[in-house]
């Protein structure tokens, strides 16, 4: 079941030289997808933001609901060299000194969706009613005045988390990952995710996988007489 896929996560270059002041202050934003309970508090809270009221910038996907309750929240990873900005023909996507990659500038954005297609994390959203790309800006209105981003404030499971690396080290487990290879493209991000251990990641196994997860109800081990005794579907079935 377990397949090791060499999505290289190792350190590939020296850390970013960009200053880490501004929106982040001394803090880091961490996504631990494995902790997500799919409650959507993040989506609901995101759309309360004063700068994009009624529109959520967070993606929350069911990975494969037929098989698992695993869900995956995604905020903008705030790449050091943002692909979205690199591919923008109108130079509409700006990165702040503090590393926050902003939504497109309305006067410049031509709504071409290049960024939507190019982002390796699938983050930017083309808003048809505005004819503009919008995305998570790390709650710039909050973080620039020292408040936590809204999603990381409300997240019941702390799957979305905002704090200092020291706080993370003191209270949390897992290895922080912020460098990625997509084919030949190296991407370093301001936002971190969490892996179980250093090294390449087994992308097919849930973080913290347990033996029982292959067979939650022990169907291989047990004779399920009750199910075998179930009558066929009335009306013939499929």
């Amino acid at each position: 079941m377990s397949v090791q896929v060499p999505v290289s996560i190792g350190v590939k270059r020296t850390p970013a030289t960009r200053p880490v002041a501004g929106a982040f202050g001394d803090s880091i934003f961490v996504i631990d997808q494995s902790r997500c309970i799919g409650c959507k508090a993040c989506l609901q809270a995101c759309e309360e933001c004063g700068t994009h009221r009624g529109t959520t910038m967070i993606h929350l996907e069911e990975v494969d609901r037929a098989a698992t309750t695993q869900t995956a929240p995604m905020v903008c990873m705030h790449c050091e060299d943002p692909t979205c900005a690199e591919v923008c023909p109108a130079d509409a996507i700006k990165q702040n000194e503090d590393g926050v990659v902003q939504s497109s500038l309305k006067p410049r954005c031509i709504g071409c969706s290049n960024c939507v297609l190019a982002c390796p994390f699938g983050v930017p959203k083309y808003m048809a009613e505005l004819d503009q790309m919008m995305k998570c800006d790390m709650c710039y209105d909050r973080t620039s005045v020292g408040l936590k981003p809204m999603c990381a404030s409300v997240c019941p499971s702390e799957a979305l988390w905002f704090g200092t690396p020291e706080q993370f080290a003191a209270t949390r487990t897992g290895v922080l990952v912020n460098e990625w290879w997509f084919g030949k493209q190296h991407v370093a991000t301001k936002v971190r995710t969490v892996a179980d251990a250093p090294g390449s990641i087994d992308v097919l196994a849930a973080a913290g996988a347990r033996p029982w997860q292959d067979d939650p109800f022990g169907l291989e081990e047990l004779d399920l007489d009750e199910l075998d005794d179930l009558p066929p579907a009335s009306g013939g079935g499929a």
Binding site: I37, G38, C39, T69, A207, W212, Q213, P216
Partner: peptide, 27 residues
Amino acid sequence: WRARDNGAKLIVADPRVTPTARTADLF
């Protein structure tokens, strides 16, 4: 999760693999 970050084991008993059960050490 605070307990688990401190090393606790999580056991969940439920007829469904709830989002809480999903990551349990024992289901």
